[in-house]
């Protein structure tokens, strides 16, 4: 238990450091890259742009202050749970994010479910029938999946299942049916890596002494694969999941835009093009928090999968 407490403490301190560093550099980058939020605001308000008006707005939003001061003011507000207001829509950033977050999380969970449903059976079949036709088929699926970009797969699925067969809705969010195509696209985009990793890991583990000992005790093959071998193979998969969270979120944004899924991806792309600083910064804080939280869960999962880690020993799986 001491180890668990220590780990949670360390992750939380990492969270603060990460959010501080990440938000500072994003803040800096946003300021030095071309583009001006004031122009976006004025364009949105449909007012002819005058230098005087521009100066006035800059003063109003504090953009004429030194960058460090601007950042300092912002981070002090964040410490008081105030993410500020969107420059464009004038709505509180927290409200805008909370409006979109459930849709993004739902799609992420859908994608992960599809990922598990595809990669675990294919990885297991591949390892059990190594270098035989079920393995070849599974590896072929993994190769095809890895070669097709997710947006292209999404377009293909839309073309066949929505346009031609008219089985599923093409875009938007509402019913369970709306959920299927974007979740499948996301899951399928991530699956190839997991299929290959699980296959390799299972092949190694199925030859390990403890599996042979289980066979020699007369344990059924099904139990050996699912209770002994699969659990031992999960560590690298969970590690990869923790590491690939960033790219998962990137992939999510593409899929959200493709399927007009009202999640955070669409919101953030708009915010970046309009240089809506408070919204971008708020988004980064929320994403950083989600990544650290998921990594904490990954660490806890390690301990459940392999209790040796709790004891501070290296796993021998």
């Amino acid at each position: 238990m001491k180890t668990v407490g220590k780990m949670i403490g360390s992750r939380l301190s990492q969270l603060f450091i990460m959010i501080f560093v990440l938000s500072f550099f994003t803040f800096l980058l946003m300021k030095i890259t071309p583009g001006d939020p004031i122009r976006s605001i004025l364009k949105v308000d449909d007012v002819s742009v005058t230098t005087k008006k521009e100066e006035q707005l800059k003063k109003e939003y504090g953009f004429d202050e030194p960058i460090l001061k601007q950042y300092g003011d912002w981070i002090i507000n964040v410490a008081q749970f105030d993410l500020g207001e969107s420059l464009i829509s004038k709505k509180p950033v927290s409200e805008l994010i909370l409006e979109r977050l459930p849709a993004t999380l739902a799609l992420a969970i859908g994608g992960l479910t599809v990922l598990f449903l595809i990669s675990i059976p294919l990885g297991v079949i591949s390892s059990l029938y190594e270098n035989r036709w079920p393995d070849y088929i599974s590896r072929w699926i993994a190769l095809v999946g890895a070669s097709i970009p997710s947006f292209w797969l999404g377009l293909l699925l839309m073309y066949f299942f929505s346009l031609k067969l008219q089985w599923l809705p093409m875009m938007g969010r509402g019913t369970f049916a709306h959920f299927i195509l974007p979740s499948f696209t996301l899951g399928m985009a991530m699956a190839p890596m997991y299929i290959s990793l699980l296959r390799e890991r299972l092949i190694t583990i199925l030859q390990s002494p403890y599996i042979e000992a289980a066979k020699a005790r007369g344990i059924s093959k099904r139990r050996i694969v699912f209770f002994h071998a699969l659990r031992g193979s999960l560590i690298p998969l969970v590690t990869m999941f923790g590491l690939s969270l960033g790219s998962l979120l990137g992939g999510l944004s593409v899929i959200e835009i493709l399927f007009s899924w009202p999640g955070m991806g669409e919101l953030i792309v708009q915010a970046v093009t309009q240089r809506d600083y408070p919204l971008i910064q708020g988004f980064i804080i929320v994403i950083g928090f989600l990544i650290v939280l998921t990594n904490l869960l990954v660490d806890l999962l390690y301990m459940v999968i392999n209790p040796q880690i709790q004891q501070g020993k290296e796993a021998r799986v």
Partner: peptide, 10 residues
């Protein structure tokens, strides 16, 4: 190999 006689995490 006694370390491999039983599955380590069960």
């Amino acid at each position: 190999d006694y370390r491999g006689s039983f599955t380590p995490f069960i």
